[in-house]
Amino acid sequence: MCRAQGDAVAGRRGWRLPGTVLLLLAYVGYLLLGSTAFWALEEPAERHSAQQLLQDKWELLGNYTCLKGPALERFIQGIIKAYKSGHTLQGNTTSLGRWDLVGSFFFSISAITTIGYGNLSPNTVSAQVFCIFFALFGIPLNLILLNRIGQLMLSGAAAILTRTCALVTGFLLFLLLPPFLFSVIEGWTYAEGFYYSFVTLSTIGFGDYVIGMNPDLTYPSWYKILVSVWILFGMAWLALVISLCITLLENSSDLCQCGKKKSKELEQELMDCNKNSSPRPDDVENGSSKDTKPEGAN
């Protein structure tokens, strides 16, 4: 029976994959899950939007026969290029202000925090070269500062609150409350504000929602500065949350390793059991001599 159990354990061990391979498979599976979900949710809307754009174009050309197709295409491309540079038409004037001191400060924050919304980027060669060196030294500085702020937040919270209460408080301050501010100033829904908050603090930074970019609104001078401070402390808090999640995953991996170690110990015990249960050559020889011994012998 011991031998049968040992064979079963050895068979299960042969089918185990290394932990790194399992992690890689889980990672690829998670990416495939996300790819399938986004494909199913976004592709129909994208197709509808493209069809609507073509329909609007042909209706415009049909209503205004003086317009020519190539000229309209060049005009549209010029509008897109101007919008990417931060310019929009407002009657007979254009909007400015993305590269004023406050706007440049907000861009600097988004650069060294690696958020990179993509809605604003340097256009001159000198600014692009400066941005390279600015980010090269600014990103490590930002990581050091975030680590220090996170440690201070954690130690300060430990003196007042438990770690769980500190995480819940941070969730309230950095994710649940800011969407109300964005709803008031930007006119977003609460869901859009919450989406922007998480995308920003996690440094995903898609750029589909960015504060202070609506040319029809007048923003307070303190708005971008306040959001910059919120980004700095919010990223430090979210880094703590991610670190906690990593710790939980590593602990679960340690539990698996502990289970494997116990399984190996059980396998070794079963192998020892097999060795002890099998007859030794000396025992076999002694048994044979006993069987062949004459009945009258002492």
Rank of each mutant, 00 (worst) to 15 (best):
S85H: 14
T94L: 09
F107R: 11
L143V: 14
I132S: 10
P122A: 03
L143E: 09
F75E: 06
A127G: 01
V102R: 09
I115R: 02
A127C: 00
F105Q: 05
G97T: 09
V102E: 01
N92D: 05
I139C: 04
P122E: 00
I79G: 06
I80G: 07
Q90D: 15
I139F: 13
S121M: 04
S85Q: 10
T124S: 12
R98Q: 13
F105Y: 11
L101F: 09
K84Q: 08
W99K: 12
S85Y: 14
I115L: 09
I139P: 00
S108Q: 13
G138T: 02
C131H: 15
G116F: 02
G97E: 04
N142Q: 14
V129N: 14
A135T: 11
V125M: 07
L120I: 04
I109M: 15
P140K: 03
S121I: 02
V102K: 07
E73C: 07
Q128V: 10
I115M: 05
L120T: 05
W99E: 02
S126M: 14
I109G: 02
S108V: 11
L143G: 09
E73G: 11
G138V: 02
L101R: 11
G116R: 03
G118M: 00
L96P: 04
Q128Y: 06
H87T: 06
I79V: 12
F137T: 06
S126E: 10
G97N: 10
G103K: 05
G91C: 10
Q77N: 13
F75T: 05
A111Y: 05
I76G: 04
F107A: 06
A135K: 13
T93K: 08
G91Y: 08
R74V: 04
F130Y: 15
G138R: 03
R98M: 10
L141R: 10
S108D: 07
I79Q: 07
T88E: 15
L136W: 09
I76C: 04
D100L: 07
Q90C: 12
R74M: 10
N92L: 08
Y117P: 04
Y117W: 15
K84T: 08
T113Y: 03
E73H: 12
L72E: 04
R98Y: 13
I144Y: 12
F75M: 06
V125Q: 10
V125Y: 12
T113R: 01
L120N: 02
L89I: 14
Y117H: 15
G138E: 00
A111Q: 09
F106K: 03
F105W: 08
G118V: 00
I109S: 01
V102S: 03
N92K: 09
G78Q: 02
I132D: 06
I112T: 12
V129W: 07
F105E: 03
C131Y: 14
L72M: 01
F105G: 00
I115H: 03
E73Y: 07
S104V: 03
G103Q: 01
F105R: 06
V129C: 06
D100M: 04
L143C: 15
